[in-house]
């Protein structure tokens, strides 16, 4: 860390993702409060503020806070109902939990100096595996062995079906991988790019070319930040709607 300070620009775009203990130095045990756990807990606090404190008035004509909570509720409720069907509404609290966790992690992670839990594959993989296991179990419990008809494309010619079945099975097992890497990758890439641009920003203090580079990099940081705000929401939305799609497959496997 200190070695770069002597020679000018410091490129540590990945340092922001390092998980370290909140208090003191030392190894990271499973129970250690780390920056990752801090920002997850802050997410929980945010969720409670929005959905519990915001709705404490229980007003017929909602306050602003209550409107936001109701908007979020209605948004995901409608999504689950439209995509997964009426019987998917049983899973609404679960899907809403996922959405809120991701959306709060993503947005809190955009604060300067913050840590973004969803930029870590360990976190998104657990989320994706939870969805995968849930969907698979629900599929078999609801439909029994006929859940396997999901892989047997009855609308295709008979000769093609085994090939398609193989592809379908592979794609089914690839789902959690793409599901998790999409989210973590998007969050990580955006933050890393901002950090790279940020590393160029102090060039004006070191060299003449900085007169051009510094404003450009600040502009680029601003633009990236705007894009990241979009990505933060879109990735939460994508993760949630894909969960709904997988759930629909589990509830209604016969296409």
């Amino acid at each position: 860390m200190s070695e770069a300070s002597g020679e000018g620009l410091m490129f540590h775009p990945m340092d922001q993702f390092i998980v370290k203990p909140l208090f003191g130095e030392g190894p990271v045990h499973w129970y250690t409060p780390t920056n990752a756990s801090l920002w997850m807990v802050l997410g929980v606090v945010g969720i409670i503020l929005m959905l519990v404190v915001g709705t404490r008035g229980r007003a017929i004509v909602p306050s602003r806070g209550q409107s936001v909570a109701e908007l979020a509720y209605g948004f995901i409720h409608k999504m689950v109902e439209d995509v997964a069907g009426k019987d998917g509404l049983k899973f609404f609290p679960y899907i809403f939990t996922l959405f809120l966790f991701i959306v709060f992690s993503n947005f809190l992670g955009l604060l300067p100096k913050a840590f973004t839990p969803t930029s870590h594959i360990a976190v998104t993989a657990v989320l994706a595996v939870l969805v995968f296991v849930t969907v698979t179990v629900v599929g078999f419990v609801k439909n029994g062995a006929s859940f396997l008809s999901l892989f047997w494309v009855s609308s295709a010619p008979l000769a093609l079906r085994p090939v398609l079945a193989l592809i379908e099975v592979i794609s089914y097992f690839v789902r959690p991988v793409s599901h998790s890497i999409r989210l973590a990758g998007n969050m990580m890439a955006g933050h890393a790019v901002i950090k790279v641009f940020a590393a160029f920003a102090p060039l004006i203090l070191m060299s003449g070319i900085g007169i051009v580079v510094t404003p450009l990099s600040i502009l680029a940081i601003t633009a990236m930040y705007g894009l990241e705000i979009l990505v933060a929401f879109i990735q939460a939305y994508v993760f949630t709607i894909l969960t709904c799609v997988y759930l629909r497959d589990a509830l209604h496997p016969h296409h």
Binding site: W30, M40, V44, P117, A122, V126
Partner: peptide, 12 residues
């Protein structure tokens, strides 16, 4: 750090 993150994620 995986164990730590997963533990806190599940708690969260």
């Amino acid at each position: 750090t995986f164990g730590n993150q997963i533990f806190w994620l599940l708690v969260t």
